[in-house]
Amino acid sequence: MILLFLVVLIVLSAYSVFTRDLLHGVIALSAVSLVSALLFYILQAPDVAITEAAVGAGVSTVVFVWAIRSTERKKRQ
C-alpha cells in the first residue's frame, strides 16, 4: 500500500507541474497533499498527518486559488 501511494504521489506531482491550466494544477496539488497525509498516517505519524491535512489541503489551496484569481484579471485588461 505504501508503494501504491508513492506511485500515485509521483504521478499527481508530475501532472501538477506539467499541466497548462493553473486551476487543474491546484486541484492536483490538493490531491497530492491528500495522498501525502495518507502516507504519513500509514507510516504511523498522525500528528504530522494532521499538520499536512490542515496546511496542505486547506490553507495552501485557498492561498493558491486566491493568487490565481488576483493575477488572471490583470492579464485580461
Binding site: 491528500l34 491535512a53 489541503a57 486547506g58 485557498v62
Partner: peptide
C-alpha cells in the same frame, strides 16, 4: 481519528475556495 476530523474540516475549506 483526529486526522480524519481535521482533514474533513480543512479540505472542505479548500473545495469551497475552488
Amino acid at each position: 481519528l483526529d486526522v480524519a476530523l481535521v482533514y474533513d474540516i480543512f479540505g472542505f475549506l479548500g473545495f469551497l475556495a475552488i
